[in-house]
Amino acid sequence: MQTILEVRGLKRTFYKDKELFTAVNGISFEVKKGECLGLVGESGCGKSTTAKMITRLLEAEEGTIYLNGKEIQNLKGRKLRGIYDDIQMVFQTPQDSFDPRCKLGDGIMESMINHGMTRVKAKTRMLELMQMVELDSGFAERYPHQVSGGQCQRAAIARALAVEPSLIVLDEATSALDVTVQAQIVELLKKLQREMNLSMLLICHDLALVQNLCDRVLVMYQGNIVEEGTPDEVIQNPKEEYTKILIDSVL
C-alpha cells in the first residue's frame, strides 16, 4: 500500500514556567492510503502538537515529515501553501474554526477560490459538499454563531474535503460535541471514508471511537509512542502499563 504520510523522529519542546518541557519526543509513524490511523493518549501527551507539526501550523524542532514522498518540514511561502492540497485538518472547536465575520459558505469556498476557481464554480462545488456532509444548503448563508456545534463541524468537514486532500487530520474533532451528535459525525466520517477512500489521522482520547473507526492505533504517553497495533489488539491485550491504565479508566 502507498504511504501518504511518513513521520520520522519528530520532536518539539516548549518552555513551561521557564522549564524546558518536551511535548513530542522523537516520534515516528506512517499513514497508508485509505487507512484510518488513531492517535490516543491523555491530555497534554503531545497529540495536538503532533497534529500541528504535521500540518505545519507549528515548526518541528527535529525530524522529517514526508507527505506523498515529499519532504515538507522546511517549505515556506507559496510552496508551503501547496501542501494544503494534500493535507487538511478538522479542529476541535468547530465554531472557533470558522471566522465569526464570514458566512459558513464563504469559509468552505475560501480554499477553492485560493486555487483559482471562479466564485460561481466554487459555489456549485460548495453546495455539493454541503450535501455530501448532509447539511441543508441554507446553512451556507449563516454565520458560525447561528448554527449548532454539530452543524458547524459538518461544515468544517466539508471545508476540509473541498480540495480533495489525500489526508485529513481530525484533531479531537468530536470532543466538543455531545454524544448523539458525536455518533452522527462518526457515521458521516465512516461514510466518507468508504466512499472516497480517505486517509485519516484521528486524534482523540476516546478509545471507543478509535475502535469504531480506526484500522490501526498508536498510544501516546508523555511525548512518546508507547504502543502500536490494531484497536482490538491494543484494547484487549495491552502490553504497556500506561495503555492498561488508559483502558481501565474508560471501562
Binding site: 501550523l57 487538511q88 485538518m89 479542529f91 472557533d96 465569526p100 464570514c102 485560493n114 486555487h115
Partner: peptide
C-alpha cells in the same frame, strides 16, 4: 484562533489573512 489556522490551511497568503480575517 483556530479560524486563522483554518485560513492558512485553505492556502490563503499572509496578506489575505490580515485583510480578510
Amino acid at each position: 484562533a483556530p479560524y486563522i489556522a483554518a485560513a492558512k490551511l485553505a492556502g490563503s497568503g499572509t496578506v489575505k489573512i490580515m485583510i480578510k480575517h
